[in-house]
Amino acid sequence: MTTTYLERILDPWREFDRMSRLLNRTSSPVSSEYPAVNVWVNGDNAVITTEIPGIERDTIDISVTGNTVSLSGSRPAEETKEEESYHRHELWHGKFSKMIKLPFNIDADKVKATYSKGVLQISLPQLETDKPRKINIK
């Protein structure tokens, strides 16, 4: 069913629904569906794991700004010739990007990442200057 622009603005609930969904999306700590991530925390260190099988290693890009980690990469489609045909096509391919917010600022210099067996694991320590400091009373 297609709706016209007029119908959309005449239905305030539809608009409300759309707005709240948008708001929910931005306030969530993760930005998009693919790839699914698990986040593990131990005090001042966080570990993000994600299953991204078949990704070209060179395309994996991890960048850190403040408390946010951005992941991106791409998976090439299987090369097929014209006479070849798919009986089943369930695998995902294309480009992805995802942002994950952590509860602390990350020490970008100490971030370590491994990609093995299709699983990406990133270790993210908290920034030293961001850690709580004990103040001695004189």
Binding site: E51, I52, P53, G54, E78, T80, K81, E83, E84, S85, Y86, H87, R88, H89, E90, L91, W92, K117, G118, V119
Partner: peptide, 22 residues
């Protein structure tokens, strides 16, 4: 696992996503 099944000339190729497996 999600799979692709492709007929390639004389072969049938099955690709399966199994992250964590070697």
């Amino acid at each position: 696992p999600a799979v692709d099944i492709i007929e390639k000339g004389n072969d049938i190729v099955i690709l399966a996503d199994m992250p964590g497996v070697d």
